[in-house]
Amino acid sequence: MTNIKINLPTEHCETCPAFTQLEQMGIKVGDFDRVIALAGNPNTGKSTLFNALTGLKQHTGNWPGKTVTRAEGGFQFNHVKYKLVDLPGTYSLLSASQDEEVARDFILFGQPSCTIVVTDATALERNLNLVMQVMEITDKVVVAVNLMDEARRKGIEVDARSLARDLGVPAVPVTARTGEGIATLLSTVAEVIEGKIAVKPMRVEGTPEFQKAVNELVPMIESMAPGIPNARWLAIRLLDGDARVQKAITSGELGGIVQRQRQADAQFSRKMSVEGRQ
């Protein structure tokens, strides 16, 4: 199979470089530079977006729960190779039924370079619940406001700028089915990963007694596993009595993760130095 090259429509994209090119690589994800996770509520078009980017044919269907396992594919955008992971839809990261566990574990322990949370423009309020929970875990979040065509048909207008300002992470309107907005989405993702766009995710405060409890736990977790990226989230989960997280902490899984992340860092800096010499 030869890779399919697509020139994306860029006329509505203010931030893109003049020339963008998407190359679908199907399941050939041998060596890649970055990993992107597709999270979101059920039935918001994650698999459709995944197919549009990778050229694969992950099944889609208009009912919540179509995807129940993790699927991986690759694409190349502006000469950077990405591995894209399509996850089962979840309403939240708290309940953890079997398909949801797949999604949660990947966002939490799979260490994606960036997580795209695909949301339904016609039910944004409901979808923001998950967005905020993902933002508790990781800073590298881009919100894709999908199903814009449906929203227009229903007379719903979404102001992505207001959304981005409030959330503290970029929000990009897209229509996965037609490919509208995908170029902007990809260049935004790239810029978030490269640190060109500063993200400052909104965090929900909670009651004062709750905050106090969290603030007592966070330093303990940080001193046990220095460099852990989401100590706050772990603290909240521990307070909630989350068996999975408790196990991760006692079994030392957490330490391993931090280490893996360090390795990635080391690799990255080695690459930087190599590239710097050239």
Binding site: E125, N129, I156, E157, D159, S162, D166, M202
Partner: peptide, 14 residues
């Protein structure tokens, strides 16, 4: 919080 954010960002016609 989600309600507040969504309220600001979304305008719904009939």
């Amino acid at each position: 919080e989600a309600e507040r954010v969504a309220h600001r960002a979304v305008k719904t016609a009939s």
